[in-house]
Design a binder for these strands. Structure first.
Length: 280
DNA sequence: CGAATTTGACCTGCGC
DNA sequence: GCGCAGGTCAAATTCG
C-alpha cells in the first residue's frame, strides 16, 4: 500500500504498455472498503523521472486532508489555465483561450496542481465534475505525460492544438476519470503550496472560490512551478517542436496530430530529478 | 505472521 | 475469426 497523494493505494497489477518501455502499474484505493477508485501509474518513456497517473472513479469516502490539499492545488492550476496567466515564455505556442475551452468546457471541472513535496503533481480531476453537460461523451482515458527538461515526446502521440480541445474535452466529458501526472522535480521549496489546502469537499465544493484563490496564489507565488507549468501546458498545444526519442513508439512523429489513444503531452522545460517514485 | 507487492495467467474489447 | 493490447485476478514472494 502506498500513500502518495493523500489516499491509500494497493497495487494489484502491472503491465508493460505498448509504446512505452516502462511498465504501467495499477492501484486500487484502499481507504475504504469497496471504493471504486483506481489509478494507473506509468513512468514517462521520455523522462522516467516523470510519473503519469491516471485516476478512474469517484471515492465513496471522505478524502483525507492530504488529498484535499492536492485537490486544492489542482484547482489552482485550473484557474491559471483559465486565466491565461501563464508565463509569457510560451505564449507563442499556447493559446490560453483554447486551453481554457478545452479544459473547462463547462467551467466546473478541476485541474489541480500539487507541488507538494516530493513530487509535484499536475492533475486533471475529472471526478469532480458534476456538471451533467460533461457526461455526454463516451469515456476516454486522459493521459498526460509530462517530460521535464525534454522536448515533448512524440511517442505518446501528442495532439495538435486543433485536436487538443477534443482530447481534453473527451477527458472532461468523462465522468469518472481524471488523470494527472507527477513529475519528479526538485521543488522542495514548493512544499509550502501544500499548506494552502482549503477544505474542499468532494463534488460540489461550496468554498470552491476560496480554495481556488488560495491555491492559485500559492502556485503563482512560485516562479519555478509556474514556469514549469507554463512550459508543460505549452507543449501540449505546441506538441510540436520536439523529437522523439527512446521508445519505439507507435505512431507519431513530428508535430504529430494523431492522437487516437487519448494521450496528451505536456512538457516542462525544467530539468527534473528525482530519487524515488511513489508509483513503485 | 499478516499485509503488501510481484508477476504470470486469464479475460475482454477492439482493430484488421 | 484472429491476434493484439489493456486490464484484472490470484498465487507466490517479500517485507515489516
Amino acid at each position: 500500500m502506498q500513500i502518495s497523494d493523500g489516499c491509500q493505494w494497493r497495487k494489484y497489477g502491472q503491465k508493460m504498455a505498448k509504446g512505452n518501455p516502462c511498465p504501467r502499474a495499477y492501484y486500487r484505493c484502499t481507504m475504504a472498503v469497496g471504493c471504486p477508485v483506481r489509478k494507473q501509474v506509468q513512468r514517462c518513456a521520455e523522462d522516467r523521472s516523470i510519473l503519469i497517473t491516471t485516476y478512474e472513479g469517484n471515492h465513496n469516502h471522505p478524502l483525507p486532508p492530504a488529498a484535499m490539499a492536492m485537490a486544492s492545488t489542482t484547482t489552482a492550476a485550473a484557474s491559471m489555465l483559465l486565466s491565461g496567466s501563464m508565463s509569457s515564455a510560451d505564449h507563442n505556442l499556447m493559446n490560453p483561450n483554447l486551453l481554457a475551452r478545452a479544459i473547462l468546457p463547462c467551467s466546473s471541472s478541476m485541474a489541480t496542481i500539487s507541488a507538494s513535496a516530493p513530487f509535484p503533481t499536475i492533475t486533471l480531476d475529472l471526478t469532480h465534475t458534476p456538471n451533467p453537460l460533461q457526461f455526454q461523451r463516451p469515456a476516454a482515458p486522459f493521459h498526460v505525460p509530462f517530460p521535464a527538461g525534454q522536448p515533448p515526446p512524440q511517442n505518446f502521440g501528442s495532439p495538435s492544438a486543433a485536436q487538443l480541445p477534443q482530447v481534453l474535452g473527451q477527458a472532461l466529458y468523462n465522468q469518472s476519470k481524471f488523470s494527472g501526472l507527477q513529475l519528479s522535480h526538485e521543488m522542495g521549496s514548493n512544499s509550502h503550496l501544500g499548506h494552502h489546502q482549503v477544505t474542499q469537499p468532494q463534488p460540489g465544493a461550496a468554498s470552491f472560490a476560496d480554495t481556488l484563490s488560495a491555491a492559485t496564489a500559492a502556485i503563482t507565488a512560485d516562479p519555478n512551478f509556474t514556469a514549469a507549468l507554463a512550459a508543460a501546458i505549452s507543449s501540449i498545444i505546441g506538441g510540436a517542436h520536439s523529437n522523439n526519442n527512446n521508445n519505439n513508439s507507435t505512431a507519431t512523429t513530428t508535430t504529430n496530430n494523431n492522437n487516437n489513444n487519448g494521450s496528451t503531452n505536456i512538457t516542462s522545460s525544467n530539468s527534473s530529478k528525482i530519487s524515488s517514485f511513489p508509483g513503485n
